[in-house]
């Protein structure tokens, strides 16, 4: 049976494949308003991303550092978030290579 493992995708690769390339817009309570992502993208996953983004925008001490847009770079994903009136626009860009 071990031979089959060679042909099966790893758990990490499977999870990563859930994140397609595209963008979505959320309101300030995290509800998805519009999206260009495939329909089969799990909504729960997008909401997790949205919550992290909205918390980052809402907690920034504006007097010290104004944040209109930010990009979080992971090994295999880039999340760009732009603050818009009443919410945020979020861009997902999976990265195909692993930079060292």
């Amino acid at each position: 049976m071990g031979l089959l493992n060679l042909f099966s995708r790893s758990h990490a690769a499977a999870a990563q494949s859930l994140i397609p390339s595209g963008s979505f817009t959320v309101d300030d309570s995290g509800h998805i308003i519009s999206t260009t992502l495939p329909r089969n993208t799990p909504e729960a996953l997008l909401q997790q991303i949205a919550q992290a983004v909205l918390s980052t925008f809402s907690t920034v001490p504006q007097e010290q550092l104004q944040v209109a847009e930010f990009t979080v770079t992971f090994n295999s994903l880039k999340i760009t978030a732009r603050a818009i009136r009443g919410g945020a626009m979020i861009f997902l860009a999976p990265r195909t290579h692993n930079p060292r």
């Binding site: 990563q16 997790q48 104004q66 990009t71 770079t73 090994n75 994903l77 999976p94």
Partner: peptide, 15 residues
């Protein structure tokens, strides 16, 4: 959670 590796950095901008 997303299995996309650690955060390399957070970059941003304003006016």
């Amino acid at each position: 959670h997303l299995n996309v590796g650690p955060v390399a950095n957070i970059e941003g901008m304003n006016a």
